[in-house]
């Protein structure tokens, strides 16, 4: 269901837990679907002994994709016009992530009502793992 301009105001928030206790299997699924087979995400032996990390960690794009799930649940299907993020901290197996969209602006461009959103995903310790923005078409 699409959002309506008359129901929104700056500061409104939508929040969802997008992954609970991230599994290594989920990392394998994302590797297979996306085609990013970087061993940093599935190969603990390489990641510990060669790359020097505590173990495998999530693809940035998996975290962005999970964040996008929250966005499409909020703004509706096919409504996004822009979505961008910076990856600020790594995401590890066992993490539980919460994604939040906050309304920053409502505007009309070429007759189309739009909502601008600030986007953030945090882990169970409250650290931000992804921060960014999105814009979506809304009804007016």
């Amino acid at each position: 269901m699409a959002l309506n301009m008359s129901d929104l105001k700056p500061g409104d928030e939508h929040s969802e837990v997008v992954i609970d206790n991230l599994s290594r299997t989920q990392l394998v699924m994302y590797s297979g679907a996306s085609g990013d087979y970087n061993p940093l995400h599935t190969d603990d032996v390489y990641t510990k002994e060669v790359a020097g990390y505590p173990g495998v960690f999530a693809h940035g794009m998996l975290t962005m994709g999970l964040t996008g799930k929250m966005l499409t649940n909020y703004v509706g299907d096919g409504r996004l016009t822009k979505f961008g993020v910076r990856f600020t901290n790594q995401v590890w197996p066992g993490d539980t992530l919460t994604s939040t969209a906050t309304v920053t602006d409502l505007r009309v461009e070429d007759g189309q009502a739009l909502v601008d959103l600030e986007v953030k995903t945090t882990n169970q310790e409250g650290s931000t793992v992804v921060s960014g923005y999105a814009t979506a078409k809304i009804d007016s």
């Binding site: 087979y37 970087n38 061993p39 940093l40 599935t42 190969d43 032996v45 390489y46 510990k48 002994e49 060669v50 790359a51 020097g52 990390y53 693809h59 940035g60 794009m61 962005m64 996004l80 822009k82 979505f83 961008g84 993020v85 910076r86 990856f87």
Partner: peptide
């Protein structure tokens, strides 16, 4: 990635390689 050894490449082992910093659509 690992096979018989932690990396399949000959020495020297590769660095940590790249990470993803930003993505925009």
């Amino acid at each position: 990635g690992s096979g018989k050894n932690p990396t399949g490449l000959d020495e020297p082992a590769p660095s940590t390689g790249g990470l993803h910093a930003e993505q925009h659509y």
